[in-house]
Design a protein around this nucleic acid. Structure first.
Lengths: 214, 214
DNA sequence: AAAGACATAGATCAAAAGGTCTATAAAGAA
DNA sequence: TTCTTTATAGACCTTTTGATCTATGTCTTT
C-alpha cells in the first residue's frame, strides 16, 4: 500500500501546552535530520483532525487534553488505523491513565521529565512499530492488571468518595441504598489496600484513577 | 554599581524538564531580539549556583525541583539580592506553593499552560520589577491570606491526615494525646471548609498544602 | 500587665464509617 | 445449565470521627 521512504519520520505533536510543543519541536529537530514535525495540535479534537489530514509516522500525545481526552483520541485514531504509532507523553505517572492509554492502543509511554536522548530513542522505537515503556512502568502495568481492577460501579463510588462525599451522599447521587455503597467502599478499601476512605481517596488521586476536581 | 544597558533582558531558566527548558528558550528567543537566555539549570542547587554566576535580569523558576525546592531557592536568592526578579512558572495552581513562593519573594507567577504571548508579557513585566499575577490567582491569594492560614501544628496534622492516618496514629506519630489531634482536625475542617477529613485531604492536595507521597 | 494566638488535654455524645454476616437477581462464561 | 462476577440490600456491631464543652500553660504583642 504505502511505498516507504525509510529515511523520513513524520511527527504530529498533540499537547495543550505551547511551551511543551515548542520544546518537543526544538529537541526533535536539532541534530536529528530525519525527524520532522509536520503538525501540532492543542486539544484532542484538533489532534484527531490533524492526524486524519497528515497521517504521521508517529503521533506524540499528551493524555490531559481539552475537548477530547488523549485516551479517547488514541482510541479513535487506532479505530481508523490499527497500525497508527502513538507515543504517550504525560506529566505524572498516574497508573490508571497509562493503563487506559495502552489499552486504547498507544505503543509507547514517556514522562515529560525524560532526558532529550530518551525522547528521541522512544520516538524512533515507536516509529519502528516497537513498544516503548520505562521498565518501572511496564512492571506496574502488569501488577495493575492483576490486582486492582475496579468494576464500573466501584469506579463511580470511588470518584465521589475522592471528592469527600459521605456514604449517604454517594448513595443519593447514584440512586442506591447506603448499605450498597458501604459494600462498594469496602471492596475498594480491599482492592486499593487502603485502611480507610481517606487513604483510598489519596491512592485514587495518586494513581490517576480519578482526577482532582476543578 | 552596575551600569545598565536597558536594551537587553538576560534570562536564567530553572526547570527540571529539558522539554520545558527548550520550549522556553525557543519561545523567548524567536522574534524577541532583546530577550536572551544566558543560562539553564535542572535543579534548585544548580539554579542557585547559576544565578550567583550570571546575575540575570529575570530568573524563570519552576517550584517542583529536585535537590532544593523552588521556594527555598527563591528565598536564598532574594536573601542575597532583595531586588532579584523571579518569575515562577509551574504546572498546577496549588495555591499554597504559590503563596509560599510569593512570600519567599517571587515577583510573578504563571502556569505552564499559558500562551506564548502571555509568557513574554510576564517576562517583560517582571524584568521591569513589576508584579505579574493572573487575576484569578491574585484574587485567591488575597482570600488565602485571610482565611486559610494554618498553624505549624495544624500543618503537621494535615500532612499525616492526608496520608490516611487515623487520629490515634497521628497522635502517636506526633507524641500527642488523641483529643489534641481532634482539636487540630476540627480546626482544619473549619479553615479548609471541608465537611470531613477525606475532603480535607483532597483540598490539601489540590491546594498544594501537602504533596502526594512518592 | 493584659490580650491574643497557639498548643495542650480531659469529658461527652451523636453521627459516620467500617467489618461481617446473609441473601437476591441479572449478565456472561464455562 | 451451572458457575462466576457484579450489583443490589438488610441486619448487627465496634471503632472512628466530628462537635462541643471546659481548662491550663506558653509565647508574643500591645
Amino acid at each position: 500500500m504505502t511505498t516507504q521512504l525509510p529515511a523520513r519520520i513524520r511527527l504530529l505533536i498533540v499537547d495543550d501546552h505551547p511551551i511543551v510543543r515548542d520544546g518537543l519541536v526544538s529537541i526533535l529537530h536539532e541534530g536529528e535530520p530525519d525527524l520532522e514535525v509536520v503538525g501540532e495540535a492543542g486539544d484532542g479534537k484538533e489532534g484527531l483532525a490533524a492526524w486524519r489530514r497528515l497521517r504521521p509516522t508517529v503521533t506524540i500525545m499528551d493524555l490531559q487534553l481539552p475537548e477530547l481526552s488523549g485516551v479517547e483520541a488514541i482510541r479513535l485514531i487506532r479505530q481508523e488505523d490499527p497500525k497508527a504509532n502513538i507515543l504517550v507523553l504525560t506529566t505524572f505517572d498516574g497508573d490508571a491513565d497509562i493503563h487506559r492509554a495502552i489499552e486504547a492502543g498507544a505503543l509507547g509511554y514517556l514522562l515529560k521529565s525524560v532526558r532529550r536522548a530518551v525522547l528521541i530513542e522512544a520516538v524512533r522505537a515507536v516509529a519502528a512499530g516497537q513498544r516503548y515503556l520505562p521498565p518501572a512502568t511496564a512492571a506496574r502495568l502488569v501488577e495493575g492488571m492483576e490486582l486492582e481492577r475496579l468494576t464500573p460501579r466501584e469506579t463511580d463510588v470511588l470518584r465521589l468518595l475522592a471528592q469527600g462525599e459521605r456514604n449517604r451522599e454517594i448513595a443519593d447521587a447514584l440512586g442506591l441504598a447506603e448499605p450498597t455503597v458501604k459494600i462498594h467502599v469496602n471492596n475498594l478499601l480491599r482492592k486499593l489496600q487502603a485502611k480507610d476512605r481517606t487513604e483510598a481517596a489519596v491512592i485514587a488521586l495518586k494513581r490517576g484513577l480519578v482526577h482532582l476536581p476543578r
